[in-house]
């Protein structure tokens, strides 16, 4: 069999439908305004689609940039709350770690506020001022992968806390904070929990969760047999406002102090 003949038999029956021809005729009449104009507007939908894609890209990109937390500020006194901070230094989320924290979080209006203003508002909150004046201990922990931003936030937070008694500021790595969250504690309490666990291995995170920082510190002080070797935060407060240390030596300031000591 000849291939030319076969092709003729195969393709000859393929015909354009009348409906398609009529649609094309109608389309041409419409696009040329009855064959009167040669300036035919090109299809706009690729342009519109491109604009839409760019818009969506900017929208989602902007959303991602704004709503991705780059640092966290954890405030512990019992209540315990945690603020998520974006790259623009604004509070984008507020989490609580216990019932008291939830009450405090509900009373605050700090979302989308600059972190320094937010911390100021927390420190000026009636519940917090009442607790601090009652000799409670407050820790503020800054966490973040971006060292520069975290250092800036820590120094901003330190400035806010400067005038407050019993207030201590720390820097912590994201891994440490993740460990704390894994057992349901805010970072400040987690540090105190680790310290307490060294003295009392039977202590559980659940027991610590509802205790105030003061209660934990008192318990540490009580359990500690050698007060001079007790490197608890509570004892450090005697040295001033910013007892960056605790027993674990992993605070931002501790690192700096260690580096200075090594240099000396």
């Amino acid at each position: 069999m000849n291939m030319n003949d076969i092709f003729k038999k195969l393709f000859k029956p393929i015909r354009a439908k009348e409906e398609l021809k009529n649609q094309t005729i109608a389309f041409l009449a419409q696009r040329t305004q009855g064959y009167t104009t040669t300036t035919v507007k090109p299809h706009r939908y690729p342009l519109y689609a491109t604009v839409c894609i760019c818009f969506l890209f900017m929208l989602f990109g902007g959303h991602w940039l704004y709503f991705t937390p780059t640092a966290e500020i954890t405030i512990d006194i019992n209540p315990s709350i945690e603020m998520s901070i974006n790259r623009f230094d604004q509070v984008i989320d507020l989490n609580d770690f216990n019932v008291d924290g939830q009450k405090l979080a509900d009373s605050l209006n700090i979302k989308y506020m600059n972190y320094a203003d937010a911390v100021e508002q927390v420190l000026n909150n009636d519940t917090i001022t009442a607790l601090l004046s009652n000799n409670e201990v407050m820790t503020i922990t800054v966490t973040g992968a971006d060292g520069q931003q975290s250092a800036k936030i820590l120094s901003g937070v330190e400035a806010c806390a400067e005038e407050r008694r019993n207030t201590y500021c720390f820097y912590a790595s994201s891994e440490e904070v993740a460990d704390a969250h894994r057992i349901g504690l805010s970072y400040g309490k987690y540090r105190a929990f680790l310290e307490l666990q060294l003295l009392d291995p039977n202590i559980t995170p659940e027991a610590v969760q509802e205790m105030t920082m003061r209660e934990i510190r008192d318990l540490i002080g009580h359990l500690s047999t050698d007060s001079e070797n007790n490197s608890s935060l509570y004892d450090n407060r005697q040295n001033g406002h910013h007892g960056y240390g605790g027993g674990h030596g992993r605070g931002w300031r501790n690192r700096r102090t260690e580096q200075q000591n090594a240099g000396e």
Binding site: A16, L20, Q23, T24, F27, L28, T32, Y35, T38, V40
Partner: peptide, 11 residues
């Protein structure tokens, strides 16, 4: 394709 080809022809 029909629209593209025949519009090109018209113009």
């Amino acid at each position: 394709i029909f629209q593209t080809v025949f519009l090109k022809y018209v113009l």
